[in-house]
Design a protein around this nucleic acid. Sequence first.
DNA 1: TTGACATATGTCGATATGGGTATATGATGC
DNA 2: GCATCATATACCCATATCGACATATGTCAA
Lengths: 118, 118
Amino acid sequence: MARAATTTDAFNAVAEPRRRAILDVLARGERPVNDLVGLLGIAQPQVSKHLRVLREVGAVDVREEGRQRLYRLNGQALKPIHDWVKDYERTWSDRFDELDIVLEELKDKEDEDGGTDR
Amino acid sequence: MARAATTTDAFNAVAEPRRRAILDVLARGERPVNDLVGLLGIAQPQVSKHLRVLREVGAVDVREEGRQRLYRLNGQALKPIHDWVKDYERTWSDRFDELDIVLEELKDKEDEDGGTDR
DNA sequence: TTGACATATGTCGATATGGGTATATGATGC
DNA sequence: GCATCATATACCCATATCGACATATGTCAA
């Protein structure tokens, strides 16, 4: 098996920095493809392809208007990423230091009397 | 050019679900490789490879102890992901609905009088 | 209808991936 | 030294990627 398709996940889709850049632009409002080409300095075909990936994972929606296609952010699709990563915030935030100590102690106690595995 | 290496980024490293699973286990404490093999049901060589990727992006640290290598989470490395994605929280959180409306109105106003592009 | 514009799709090439399996390295205990 | 345990690395394969470029589709205007 090879690496998972970029369209598998929001995680995979967003691993590409240019796709994050596209989302960052769209976060400030709906845009036609050509705006993204100009703003980001990426060739039009690649922008279209990146948008396709983002569409497939649900991170953007399209709306047709004349010959343009207006892309709009759908942040919902990024929620799984936020949900996953937010639990790690404690590891770099001082605010959680004391809580960490308490939890460490609890864990050690569990390991002592409960420990079936390991 | 091909897809960016998994070791380029925390974003790329974490796109692989098994690597997230490994981090989730390590989040609860230091573990030797074999624990991960048992807990996650992944073959030992793949676990070692995933750990290598996580090491290269700084998401885990190793400590040698006898014939074991104890891996420990370094959540710091995930901060860029959190920093990026947290700005999108507003798009799905009700708490920001009112703020969104205000900002939308502000943006519309800007577009009306400022609009140089488009 | 023709031509210009906006966007999407196809093809090619180089590359890194992840799983599987085999094997190397390295520490421990006898 | 030798067998064993713990981990890392090497190799093979099938596959999807991204960039570049060419081209198809579709809309508007004259």
